[in-house]
């Protein structure tokens, strides 16, 4: 981990990752995703029914740049759980289908192995949202 004091954006992202047990960096917001992959990832998280923080990376290109530098992951969305990168849309969807995501998030559902949910036409407001704070 870099602790360079000269990079406030990187520090803000690192704080957000460490302070939120479940945090999704995405294009757009959970209510209005701006990309199909972000929309699908939000739909999966909402199906698991565990509150998550969301950061919209679109307002400032530096968010994405610093995020990818921290995670070593080139694409958006990126889901972090307990400070660790879980993956993007493909991995999150796959883990939902196998029930691993539910286990990781401490939510046991009877429907593990269910079909991945389609993105809903509109979403409930996420319980915790810190978009635009970065």
């Amino acid at each position: 981990m870099s602790d360079s004091p000269s990079n406030p954006m990187r520090e803000a992202i690192q704080s957000a990752i460490s302070e939120n047990p479940v945090i999704l960096f995405m294009k757009g917001t959970p209510e209005a995703p701006a990309c199909g992959f972000s929309a699908r990832t939000v739909a999966v998280l909402e199906a698991v029914d565990r509150p998550f923080a969301a950061v919209n990376i679109l307002p400032d290109p530096a968010i994405r740049q610093e995020l990818s530098a921290i995670s070593g992951w080139p694409t958006i969305p990126q889901l972090f759980v307990d400070g660790e990168l879980v993956g993007g849309c493909d991995i999150v969807t796959e883990m939902y289908q196998t029930g691993e995501l539910q286990k990781l998030l401490g939510v046991e559902t009877a429907e593990a192995g269910a079909e991945a949910p389609e993105p809903a036409a509109h979403h409930e407001t996420a319980p915790l949202s810190i978009e635009n704070l970065l």
Partner: peptide, 14 residues
């Protein structure tokens, strides 16, 4: 899974 995906992502880089 992360490492598997990175292996393929690294083929294309930026």
């Amino acid at each position: 899974r992360i490492a598997q995906h990175k292996l393929v992502y690294d083929v294309f880089g930026a």
